[in-house]
C-alpha cells in the first residue's frame, strides 16, 4: 500500500483546500491516476478529478504530483518509492473542486492567437492539396504536438503573477501556424506585445514541464527574434512593404 495525500476543495464546504490521506495498493503498473480511480471507485466517491484517454494524448489529467506538474496517467506510483505521494490541482489556476481547475482563461488565449490556417486569395478546389515537403512539415511539426494539458501554464511563474500573459502553449500554437508553409497570416500584432512574447522572462520551466516535447520556450524565444527583426524592418523607411 502507498499513501496518496490528495488535495480536497469542496466549494461551500471548505474555505481553502485541505489534504486527505488515502491508502491505495502499490502496484508496479499503476499510475497515479489508477490510484485516484481506485479511491473514487472503492473508497470515496466524492473525490473529483478529470481524466479520459489514460494514454497521454487527451490532456485531461494534469495535476501537481509531489510539487511537479505531471500527466497523472503517465506518472507511476512506484516512481515515488514508499510514498507518500502528494496530489494537488495544477498550480496557477483557480480550483473548481478537488483536483479540477478552471482552464477557460487559457482556452480563450488559444483562440486569441488565430490558430487556424490563414490564406489569402482563392482557395484550391477540393481535388488538390497544398504541397508541403517533409522538411516544410518538420519546420512546425513539433509545435503541432501540443495536447493543451496546461502543464506549461502551471509551471510558468509569469502566468501566475501576470494573468494577462498569453503564455507558453498559446504562443507555441501561434508559431505552429506561423511556421507552416501553407499559412499566409500575420500574427505580429497579437504576439509582439507586452502580454505576448515580451512578457516572457525565459524561465524555461514550460519546456521542462511539457510531456510532449513541444518546447514552448523555444517557440517564444524564436518569435522574439522574429518580432525584433520585424520591428526594426518596420522602422526603416525602405523596410515597410
Amino acid at each position: 500500500m502507498i499513501t496518496l495525500q490528495v488535495s480536497r476543495y469542496r466549494p461551500g464546504q471548505d474555505a481553502e483546500p485541505v489534504f486527505q490521506d488515502y491508502e491505495v495498493p502499490l502496484r508496479s503498473d499503476w499510475a497515479v491516476l489508477d490510484g485516484l480511480a481506485h479511491i473514487k471507485d472503492h473508497l470515496d466517491g466524492t473525490l473529483s478529478f478529470r481524466w479520459s484517454c489514460r494514454m497521454g494524448i487527451c490532456g485531461s489529467c494534469g495535476m501537481t504530483v509531489n510539487g511537479e506538474p505531471r500527466l497523472t496517467c503517465g506518472t507511476f506510483l512506484t516512481d515515488y518509492g514508499e510514498g507518500p505521494i502528494r496530489v494537488e490541482p495544477l498550480r496557477g489556476f483557480p480550483v473548481i473542486r478537488d483536483l479540477v481547475v478552471d482552464i477557460d482563461d487559457v482556452l480563450a488565449k488559444l483562440a486569441h492567437v488565430k490558430p487556424w490556417l490563414i490564406r489569402e486569395g482563392e482557395e484550391l478546389p477540393l481535388t488538390a492539396e497544398y504541397t508541403q515537403t517533409p522538411a516544410q512539415l518538420e519546420a512546425y511539426k513539433q509545435y503541432s504536438m501540443c495536447i493543451n494539458c496546461m502543464l506549461c501554464y502551471s509551471a510558468c511563474p509569469v502566468y501566475a503573477l501576470e494573468p494577462d500573459f498569453l503564455g507558453p502553449a498559446a504562443i507555441a500554437l501561434a508559431q505552429r501556424y506561423n511556421l507552416d508553409s501553407r499559412d499566409q497570416g500575420d500574427r505580429f500584432d497579437l504576439l509582439a506585445t507586452d502580454e505576448g512574447v515580451w512578457g516572457c522572462t525565459f524561465v524555461g520551466e514550460c519546456t521542462s514541464a511539457c510531456p510532449k516535447h513541444v518546447d514552448p520556450a523555444e517557440a517564444i524565444q524564436r518569435y522574439k527574434l522574429t518580432a525584433a527583426l520585424t520591428s526594426v524592418r518596420n522602422l526603416l523607411p525602405w523596410g515597410r512593404s
Binding site: E16, P94, V95, D102, P157, F202, V203
Partner: peptide
C-alpha cells in the same frame, strides 16, 4: 472557485525558479 495566492517566496521553492 478557490483562487490560490502566489507566495512571496515562490522563487525559492524550485531550483529552476531560483536559478532564474
Amino acid at each position: 472557485s478557490y483562487r490560490p495566492r502566489v507566495h512571496p517566496l515562490w522563487w525559492a521553492r524550485r531550483r529552476a525558479y531560483l536559478v532564474f
